[in-house]
């Protein structure tokens, strides 16, 4: 999996977001076991402490839970992950819109741009 972490932002929230996306999009199913802390650390190229901290934060939010001696699992209830995903979509849309506004386009123009882009 491609992590492509942003070097300007703290790593921990980025790992949390990625896991939420994987859960919300179904790449990791509800109730499924996650890769180990070390495996995630290796594939993302970050320290195991950061992954551990991310997993603990996700546990607090109710996205995943740990089973003693067995590892980390996705919750059956994935509403929190979906909510995080929606927030991400919103903030990325916001960023896009303000970019386009600064180019002098209004919302109707933007909608047209997107439609035309799709037709290309």
């Amino acid at each position: 999996m491609e992590w492509s972490l942003d070097k300007k932002r703290p790593i921990c929230p980025q790992i949390c977001e990625k896991i939420c996306i994987l859960v919300a999009t179904g790449s990791i199913g509800a109730g499924e076991k996650l890769a180990s802390v070390r495996e995630v650390a290796l594939s993302a190229g970050v320290t195991p402490n950061t992954v551990q901290r991310s997993f603990e934060q996700l546990e607090q939010k109710g996205v995943i839970y740990s089973r003693r001696g067995s590892g980390w699992y996705v919750n059956e209830d994935i509403r929190v992950a979906r909510e995080t995903m929606r927030e991400l979509v919103n903030s990325k849309t916001n960023a896009y819109l303000s970019d386009m506004h600064s180019l002098g386009l209004n919302n109707d123009d933007i909608i047209n741009v997107i439609k035309e882009y799709q037709h290309e």
Binding site: R38, A41, L42, G45, T47, P48
Partner: peptide, 8 residues
């Protein structure tokens, strides 16, 4: 880098 993580 991965050796360092692996031997963590």
């Amino acid at each position: 880098i991965s050796t360092i993580i692996n031997n963590y």
